[in-house]
Write a protein that binds this DNA or RNA. Sequence first.
DNA 1: TTGTATGCGTTATCAA
DNA 2: TTGATAACGCATACAA
Lengths: 355, 355
Amino acid sequence: MDAKRKREQVTMKDVAKATGFSPATVSIVLNNAPLARYIAPGTRQKIEESAKRMGYRPNAMARFLRSKRSQSIGVMMFDVTDPFCTPILRGVENALYPLGYLPILADAHNQRERFERYLEMLLERHVDGLIVVANWLFVDIHVLADLNKAEVPTVTIGWEIPGNRVSFAMVDNEAGGRLAIEHLYQLGHRRIAMIRGPKRLIDSAPRWRGIQKFAQSVRQEIDPSLVLQLPDVFDANASFEQGYRLTEELLQKKKKFTALLAFDDLTALGAIRALAKAGVSVPEQCSVIGFDDVAISGLSAPSLTTVRQPLETMGGAAVNMVMEAIKAAQENREWSAAAHQLHPELVIRDSTRSI
Amino acid sequence: MDAKRKREQVTMKDVAKATGFSPATVSIVLNNAPLARYIAPGTRQKIEESAKRMGYRPNAMARFLRSKRSQSIGVMMFDVTDPFCTPILRGVENALYPLGYLPILADAHNQRERFERYLEMLLERHVDGLIVVANWLFVDIHVLADLNKAEVPTVTIGWEIPGNRVSFAMVDNEAGGRLAIEHLYQLGHRRIAMIRGPKRLIDSAPRWRGIQKFAQSVRQEIDPSLVLQLPDVFDANASFEQGYRLTEELLQKKKKFTALLAFDDLTALGAIRALAKAGVSVPEQCSVIGFDDVAISGLSAPSLTTVRQPLETMGGAAVNMVMEAIKAAQENREWSAAAHQLHPELVIRDSTRSI
DNA sequence: TTGTATGCGTTATCAA
DNA sequence: TTGATAACGCATACAA
């Protein structure tokens, strides 16, 4: 039974008063500060016991004021709703947890204005570092500039910022593109429809390069009439709809192809939907491969063969990189941005087969 | 070119010095405090202009120390990876944004230990309120107790905590169950297989009750040999696998049914997979209905008919409720927990058809 | 081995 | 209309 429901916070001063020691001593003990080595065992025990009994809980805000460490990381996503973001978020959270850090979440909704406002808010909160999961967002050059001048250690995932201030983690898109086409080629497919990524998206070009290089290496021509182009649309579900639409158009033109290589998984799912509607069964009559290995891909019918981005790993890598940068800043060390390219992995499921 | 890369924070004192006024005046002006009414327009302008020019940014931590408001809300999820969580997170974020609040994210991974550690961390950070997205977690009675004694305004989503300290937002499961069976019934289905929810999950019982009541109301018997039971497993993808397995067993027993009512969407997708594998086409030979309307459901092939939980709305509702509680606490008002039941909605897609 | 004093950046009270 | 001062909770330099 509490006398008051709204009890006050127990502070170090309270613990000090209760134990008869000074707040300084209490601080030293409870933080296991270097000086704690000189504290008498009995003192230590008394303080620790009292703190526990009284329900003492350090005040992170007050602590920050002295230590300048907030033990929190700002995590900016371009769109939490995008299935691409969830595994990254998990990866970030999971790497932060053992470090005693907490993520403060900001969701830009793919809007620059929102991004900027959130950036401001995160800086007011003095996050120790920033992890930015970007894609469309960075189409805008200004946002880029914002990040470069942000006076906080920053890492981006999925986008590279020129300069040596911002580290990034990113999948090797070129290798991924190669993996995708190579798989189809080895299954015997020669007439392959392809849906290229939006022009302004950073992943599109290298992924396409991987495809081209492989085609050249096996002296296989890419039929331009089978190559489609995703438009520049900023929306999580857009690629599904566009995949559907483009595939439908292709079918109407009576183009012949035995396989379809989609820019990403949602596009692939849209394509499968269109194929199904037209009575083309996957994979019997047409193989389809995606990219990303988003959570849905394993559950769809047929389950989707795809090139996996190690998203959760990327989240973890990003955490390691910000932590490095934070440490460097604290120790006033020289430090320069790092780049982390992760390997994609072919995941063979039910949407592709040999002919 | 900065002389130092690591520049210091611009404080009110700095602005005060630059303008020749006192920090107090600066504070009054920049916060538009009540007293700002008496500040000379010229003063005001000079201060605001200088603050902007110097790049002054309030320090949220220091501000908290005085005001006791952190402008952040702890958001605890049982598993961010669960597709159930994402729309809720979006709803929360979106409602928080215009209020100038930021969510601090904690992901319990369905583990009690982790939940408790995170709760502690959030309290150290003095979140103004707490939103807990629960399901499995709360199977554990202790966690429940933790929340009741937490000295912070709290709202749960998807689980009810006895007592009048914790508000909650939840879908009307009974109505949802009814919606699902009613849909199948109206399509002419009479032999309906059902996969019930895990026994320990709070949604299972009311959802089943809705089904039973409807069956009674139309004098339709529920064939016990067509009723399956999801086991108590704590994992996001478990229900997919279990749906697959249970359906497979049902098919092996040569049970006849024209429709299948699954506890949730993932279970339904698992069931569809099993049906497809056995050569039973959906919806031609068997209709399937899910529950939740998770993001995947609209994209799967066939797209899934389901009972929609307004997840994003629930997130927004939760925010409103914590804010109420926070305001009450600040004003030292009496306040009692509220309950918010949201209406489910039938979403008809391609996985069901009439016979 | 422990205590005293100071300041982190703000805001609120009171005084001028 | 504005300024001086104190206090929020903590950590550290220095003193004892």
